[in-house]
């Protein structure tokens, strides 16, 4: 399984807001265990999807040159369960952005109904802070996904 919890961006306003969708299917393994006989989408994965939507919005604002790392979820409210067959829509809005990090407000909806809300903070981590030599977030698999979504400019795909 690939650690990509959004399927596609449907709206993207650089430095301001973005909207991505995630389709849920019975074929996804975790529904077997979560929960046995009563498949619901784990809230942890919903938060991951919101964080990926927000993290890419923040990454793009820095030209994908910084390593955007999920640092803190200051608040979460969950309003409803989400089931296989539904489509989640993740909408994030950039609240703050500076050299050290960024904050987004995220809302998850299913058919226009709000199912969860969260305020998510990201830190900009330099590779040497964690003993690496190269950027580690917007590389490899994630870069491919972004290229598929045509988010990265041609020279950077």
């Amino acid at each position: 399984m690939r650690w990509i919890w959004i399927d596609r961006f449907v709206e993207f306003e650089p430095g301001r807001r973005a909207k991505a969708i995630k389709n849920l299917t019975q074929a996804e393994d975790y529904f077997r265990e979560h929960l046995p006989g009563y498949p619901i989408f784990p809230i942890s994965l919903l938060l991951e999807g919101l964080a990926q939507t927000g993290g890419i919005l923040v990454g793009e604002a820095g030209n994908f040159e910084r390593n955007v790392v999920l640092a803190k979820i200051a608040s979460v409210q969950v309003h409803a369960e989400v089931y296989p067959g539904q489509q989640l829509e993740y909408e994030v809005e950039l609240l703050d952005l500076r050299e050290e990090g960024a904050t987004v407000r995220g809302i998850a909806r299913v058919q226009a109904q709000v199912v969860a809300e969260a305020e998510i903070m990201f830190a900009h981590v330099r590779p040497e802070q964690i003993g690496l030599q190269e950027n580690f977030v917007f590389s490899g698999e994630l870069k491919k996904l972004l290229a598929l979504n045509r988010l990265l400019p041609p020279g950077k795909r």
């Binding site: 640092a71 803190k72 200051a74 609240l95 703050d96 050290e100 990090g101 904050t103 903070m121 830190a123």
Partner: peptide
Amino acid sequence: IDFLDIVFRLE
């Protein structure tokens, strides 16, 4: 990390 969060919120 909370220090940056606090700065954002105060701003």
